[in-house]
Simulated assay, not measured.
Amino acid sequence: MAIEQLSDGRWKVDVEPVKGKRFRKTFKTKGEAQRFEATCRAKCIESPSWSPKPKDKRRLSELVDRHYDLHGHTLADGERVRQILIALAKDLGNPIAITLTANAYCEKRRHQLDAGVHGKTLNNRLGYLKAVFNQLLRLDDIDYPNPLTKVRPLRLQERPLSFLSAPQINEVLDALDARETTPGIGLVARVCLATGARWGEAQALTPERVKNGAVTFANTKSRKTRSIPISQALEQQLQHHFKQHGLFSNCMLTFSRVLDTTSIKLPAGQATHVLRHTFASHFVMRGGNILVLQKILGHASLTMTMRYAHLAPDHLQDALTLNPLADK
């Protein structure tokens, strides 16, 4: 008999689709056993040399490393993401990857949320882990569906973007210029404010990428280079710094410390990034085009840039004239 029930309730398949080629396997349910038997018969008819693949026993951390070897190493922040995923695999108990379920993941996520892990952090982790399964499935390194396909990100309350007013910009720049132990830190901030660059992009500038009235940012988050015009005065200041001090040092942490000495209080996680928000916000408030802003910031999607649209002078002004009380 090809399928029989064992004394412990499991179902055993013992099938010989072609003479001399026999397959045996046990399953928890009769349906699984029947599907396995049907697959064996159909595949052996199509290709007599076919054999079912052995069960994938790799653990989640092994899939993370495999993903890094095949694809992750090509990403700008691949190593950082790998470390995050290794820690996540440990938090999940590092199960055999094929046994991971959406329910198990969501239960663990709830505990992490209760423990104070920020929702955005949890959504980032979910996106990273989904990408591991999707990429390995695309490369035929796994042959089972992504177990997290139906897990949705947490719905988060949108936070207003913080940006600096003109007096606050002066306060920050004065505090940075006074930091004599870190030459050029104020200049990095000025590049961010003048171009909308991320701190790391501005900090990585070299003399060769500052010329002809523009700065060119390479090794960006989007992997695309972009050139942004700057004033002649800022170009001269940059070239003078390179001649006198060489390249900029890694001063992101110093910026946060200097910011703490000012009267400016920002939401968590918006230290150096407030300079990028400040550029974008003032650009829009002065009537700048949102599509131009997208190119300047290097956003791959207009959705990210649209966060600043509400700051435009004419944004939603029709609400004043077209509301039902306008004529009263």
Rank of each mutant, 00 (worst) to 15 (best):
L122Q: 10
N146S: 10
G20T: 01
V81K: 15
K12C: 06
F163Q: 12
F279A: 10
R209C: 00
A87H: 14
C44Q: 11
A309N: 05
I290E: 09
G200V: 01
N124K: 12
V64P: 14
H111Y: 07
D140V: 03
N323A: 03
E62V: 03
L70D: 09
Q168W: 02
K211H: 12
K21L: 01
G213C: 03
S249V: 13
A312W: 07
S51N: 10
K43G: 02
N124A: 09
V151I: 08
R226H: 04
L156K: 09
S49I: 06
K120D: 13
A166S: 07
A233D: 13
L247S: 13
A131V: 01
R35N: 05
T278G: 04
E208N: 06
L156F: 08
S256Q: 12
V191H: 06
G186W: 05
C40R: 00
E171F: 00
Y308W: 03
S301P: 08
A104I: 00
G116H: 01
A271L: 04
R159N: 14
I98R: 14
G246C: 10
S162G: 13
D141M: 09
W11R: 06
H282R: 15
C44T: 13
S227T: 15
P52C: 09
N250C: 04
L126I: 01
P313T: 06
L275F: 03
T225S: 13
T29G: 07
E79Y: 10
K120L: 04
K108S: 11
R35K: 14
R10V: 01
G246P: 06
E37W: 02
A104N: 00
A204G: 07
F283K: 12
H282D: 04
T262K: 07
A97N: 00
T101L: 04
N134I: 00
Y144L: 08
L75I: 05
D14Y: 02
K43F: 03
L259D: 12
K328F: 04
V191I: 11
P54D: 11
Q168N: 04
